[in-house]
Every structure is written in structure tokens, then in C-alpha cells.
Nucleic acid binder design. Structure first.
Lengths: 148, 148
DNA sequence: GCTTCACGCAACTCCTGTTGTTGCGTGACC
DNA sequence: GGTCACGCAACAACAGGAGTTGCGTGAAGC
């Protein structure tokens, strides 16, 4: 199944924006992500609505961070993207009145809820500033990246 | 994103099969799931390969449980289905050499790995027999179902 | 005031993986 | 031998993210 990479991409962009003086145009961001400006605007729209970035029209326009990275967590961005579905597996709902289906789905939902709680809790504890710091350490060769 | 409901469906089927005397044909299972027999065979194939069910051809043929529900966990079925992707969100890999992308993806992967470990651990602890028991309790009205 | 830049938005197409469907082959009972 | 039911291959349907094009609008610069 094709994965939703919006969260990963937007985090990447936001951290880059901190180092970027002035505005970053959708074109520039798209170039960086290997995509196109419309996709960037579409995805950034959610972040703007939540007040994490601002967009300026016209000459010299583009995107600006509206908050410092210390104030933004991964969870914030996840929510700003509309809290997309986290899991690729879902519950069958063919026979809602079947007690077996109910028991199966309850059990699956319980496990998934627990995993989701863990995931969102972790997302809520990591700020973009920490990621930026981590990236700097990586750049200095003080960390090894075991994940691709 | 369209969810993968194979796990939920197969669990449902397996528990029903315990109560079903003799074989259950793909047609009957498909009818129960509101789908068609080919989908059933396709999905059950993985369970057969792992020895959880058997299939018999010809007159009176169909599907049979090859193990008792006590010996099968949710995790077993998940694996038998080919351990499909659990998460709907993924990591962007446009600039593998970008340290920021690396830091972002490392952080996301760490959180997802933790959530996945929790999820699989929970799956591994629940047997189908327990689900069947839970369903019986629901049928007796001794449990309330807060999940749809 | 006109041009240019850059976002805003709508309406597509493309891609990918599950699901749904049809057709044909094969083994097992009756 | 005929019927039943699985086995398998080759499709189409569907959904959602991603990609693309076109047109509109506001702001800076000339």
C-alpha cells in the first residue's frame, strides 16, 4: 500500500525553513522535495490554518515559519495535516450484528488504540527543534543512522 | 486510505469455522463476508500455507481448521497474511543524503517501531479461543460494545 | 497602471494495492 | 462421467495520495 509521506515531508520542510532566511517559495520547496508546487501548497495549507506557517503573496512572497521550532511537535503537524489514518489495517464491518465480528473488532481496536496512543504520545514529546538539533549532530558525524 | 481488512475478516471466519460442523465452502464464507469466493480462497491460501487451515477439493470439500483456536494468535494470522504493512504513514526518501531528512525519518521510525512492537505484542497475546469466548459473552449480553 | 511573481483553488490524470470478477483447469466424490 | 469445490491467472473496480494544468488574485517593482 502506498504510504502517506506528508508528515515526513512537512517536518523536513519546516526544519529547513528555519535555516532559510526570508520566505521559501512553493517552487523552491517542491524542488527540494522532488515534487511540484501545487502539492506543496495543498499540504502546507493545513499547517497555515493551524498557525504554524504563514504564506505571503506577490513579489518576494512565499512561506514563513509562524512559530519557533521549539513550539511545534510532531503531533502538532500530524494534527495539522488532518490527523490522517495511522494504520493500514482496518476493521471489517460486514455483519455489525455478528457477536464474533464484534469481539474480533473490539480486540483489534484495543490493540490498535494502544499502539496509536504510544505513537501519538511519542509524537507529542518530540519538538522540531530537537529534530533540527539531531540533524546537526548527524551532520557532524556524531550519530550513526541505522534507519535508511 | 482504503484499509486492509483481511486480518479482521480472517479472524472472523476462523472463529465461525469452529462452530461449523464439517467443511465450510469458499462460497459459504464469501456469502458470510459479503464478498466472493475467489477473494476468500486468495486470502485463506496464506493460512493454509502456514498450516492453520486445510482445504479439501471435490464433493463435500471446503475449508477446515487444522489447529485448535487455542493454538492460534492474532499475530499468527497477521504473519500468515504476509505481515502486511501496519502503518498508513511512511517515510519520505527524496534526499537520502539530507541530514534533516535522516533525523526526521529516524525519529518517525523510532516512534512507529515502538508502536508496532506494542501492537504485535498485543496480537501475540490474544488467541482466537479467547476471542470466541469473548463473542459468547457478548452474545449473553454480559459485555457492552463501545467499539462499533 | 502594467507586468511579474507567487499563492489559491478547481479539475483533472497517474499510481498502487486491496477488492471484485470471470474463465479455465484439476482433483474428489456420487 | 457429471458435479462440486478449490487453484490459478488475468483482468476491472475502487480509493486515496501524488502529480499536473489552468485560471484567478493580491503584492511588489517598474
Amino acid at each position: 500500500m502506498r504510504s502517506d509521506t506528508r508528515l515526513s515531508r512537512m517536518l523536513h520542510v519546516l526544519i529547513h525553513m528555519q535555516h532559510h532566511e526570508g520566505t521559501a517559495t512553493s517552487d523552491a520547496i517542491a524542488m527540494m522535495l522532488g515534487t511540484n508546487p501545487v502539492v506543496v501548497r495543498r499540504t502546507m495549507a493545513g499547517l497555515r490554518d493551524q498557525g504554524y506557517v504563514r504564506s505571503e503573496k506577490g513579489h518576494g512572497g512565499g512561506w514563513l515559519l509562524a512559530r519557533s521550532l521549539e513550539e511545534i511537535t510532531l503531533l502538532d503537524i500530524h494534527k495539522a495535516l488532518g490527523t490522517p489514518q495511522l494504520f493500514a489495517i482496518g476493521l471489517a464491518g460486514d455483519n455489525p450484528s455478528c457477536t464474533i465480528e464484534q469481539a474480533v473488532n473490539t480486540s483489534l481496536a484495543e490493540a490498535m488504540d494502544a499502539a496509536e496512543a504510544i505513537l501519538l504520545a511519542k509524537f507529542g514529546k518530540v519538538t522540531l527543534a530537537e529534530l533540527a538539533e539531531g540533524a546537526a549532530k548527524v551532520a557532524n558525524g556524531r550519530l550513526t543512522m541505522e534507519h535508511l
